[in-house]
Design a protein around this nucleic acid. Structure first.
Lengths: 294, 294
DNA sequence: AACTATTATGCTCTTATTGAGCATATATTA
DNA sequence: TAATATATGCTCAATAAGAGCATAATAGTT
């Protein structure tokens, strides 16, 4: 048998996240149906530069720091013209540009546990998953662990595992089954929703042990703003007093002499991120653990 | 300006790790100068299958579960014939096959902090880094954080950061400077040592929150064996009694009714990994934190 | 001006986890 | 039998994490 080196095209896909009105949003195209993406061209001198080029061309947005997510290549692709999809994640504090920002939780309604609304969603999903699992203990166990059923804990970071489980169970439209978008989430083209799920997983893990949140809040913020940013990203509520204690003990922020104005109640002090103290904060072990509420 | 979709070749690189005689080892070719690797061919129906094919052909080893590491593509590569290098990591408990197993710490002597030998290495590196940093505070701070100098903590997982810092400082042979292998580590071809550093970083992080160690120890083991496996991978010693307490509290292991024999001292009970309890253990939050020794 | 609603912030209390090390148990070897 | 070596059980102090009470400071209302 002959062996031929496969030539392939590399496609670059970007997941750009911002926070607006207490909701994490992602930059999309075509009415939310896909992510900015384009092929690596001979003019691009690096993968990242290719990515930047396409995002800017398609959305007008200039990416800052990006982080590689995953390379997908094992789908059922044509043998002769292979495609390798390399995905990246980026953050921005100003999603004010034109173009389609969509809430994360349109795509993954079961991931926003801040309100009671998701209880309905989860109940429906639980029922359908149980139908799929039947009496197969392996399947049941996977459902329990992924969705925190039957006494298991809910793990914020397991966004991808949950999405893939729903796919396997035929409960997302991409898998060819008819579904309700309020429950099963809005679909995307190709595997873009899977890439988005990968990004949420990564970002939720990242904010736990790096000061990544600070890239999403304004220069000056109250501790409540910071907490709400963490809550929006992680999808769960936190204990206010304990959150303050943690942030302050980590020495990640410093007081300013200014206060918030124009709101009800006692005005909150504005804080600023101590960048010098944690330029590479994960190295020094500083963490921003989520003081979870039960 | 014309835009042309770049065709490229995808190269698949494997980092296969095993534990032998208390040392973590990696499967290499050409006397330790490179990792098993090969191009994606038209016959390969997925990236992983291509990877398996090359590793088996070059080393005779059949890979088990693999995990993707990183895709490198932004090096100074020829425009017309681009190369995308996709790297993977795998573990095995029997590195008994033929072929070149090399200790991790031949490549990264400063990463093995279990013995006093590394103190000399680190002292030399520290001196040279200080020379490179001069009086630039940004550089000094990076050195301190990466290598735990000046009161900063040593972070096991930051293998890649340390390697890249040494590269930037011109202290590794790949950067074109003449170096001493006992201090600066054995070089590899191309960027393979960087890929290896990525793998160590990932694996050291992984053993903290998944039961990955159990893929590297025999079916039945004493708690000391398990501890020594963790120590070999993380490069640091741990407190014996506290380690037992942690492992047992996590319910990751179960007693057998057998004991170790043929060694000095009181014979140790043999334990077995409770796979059922943690098939997907990271989801349920089970951790194997390293009870560090100061 | 007094009162109420609302949010910020300080503080305590309890429990769980972690680092450290002492004490005892059970084997081998001299 | 004594010495040595390792395994294993247990305590103690320090720290971190979850929960909630109490007080402070503002805007709006009566």
């Amino acid at each position: 048998m002959d062996h031929h080196v496969a030539t392939c095209r590399a496609e670059l896909v970007a997941v750009l996240t911002t926070l607006r009105n207490g909701m994490p949003e992602v930059l999309t195209l075509q009415n939310g149906r896909c992510l900015p993406a384009g092929p690596l061209e001979t003019e691009h001198t690096s993968l990242q530069r290719g990515l930047r080029h396409w995002v800017e061309q398609q959305t007008g947005f200039r990416l800052g720091h990006v982080e590689q997510l995953y390379t997908f290549g094992d789908a059922a692709l044509a043998q002769q013209d292979r495609l390798v999809r390399i995905s990246y994640m980026a953050l921005t504090r100003d999603g004010q540009t034109q173009g389609g920002w969509q809430s994360w939780y349109n795509y993954f309604p079961w991931e926003d546990r801040r309100t009671n609304a998701c209880l309905t969603v989860l109940k429906t999903i639980e029922d359908r998953l149980k139908g799929w699992a039947g009496d197969q203990p392996a399947r049941l166990e996977r459902c329990n662990q992924a969705f925190g059923l039957n006494g298991e804990n809910w793990n914020d970071d397991a966004v991808l595992e949950r999405y893939e489980l729903l796919w396997e169970a035929g409960l997302v439209p991409e898998a060819g089954r008819e579904t309700v978008s309020q429950i099963n989430g809005q679909p995307m083209l190709w595997d873009h929703r899977r890439i988005l799920a990968t990004a949420l997983s990564r970002l939720r893990a990242k904010i736990r042990y790096t000061p990544a949140v600070f890239e999403l809040v304004p220069e000056e913020f109250t501790l409540l703003h910071l907490q709400q940013a963490m809550e929006a990203l992680s999808g769960r509520l936190m204990h206010k007093q304990n959150f303050r204690r943690l942030v302050q003990n980590q020495q990640l922020v410093e007081e300013t002499d200014r206060y918030e104005s124009g709101v009800q109640g006692r005005p909150a002090r504005l804080y600023r991120f101590r960048r010098e103290n944690s330029e590479n904060c994960y190295l020094s072990g500083a963490k921003l653990p989520l003081g979870e509420i039960s």
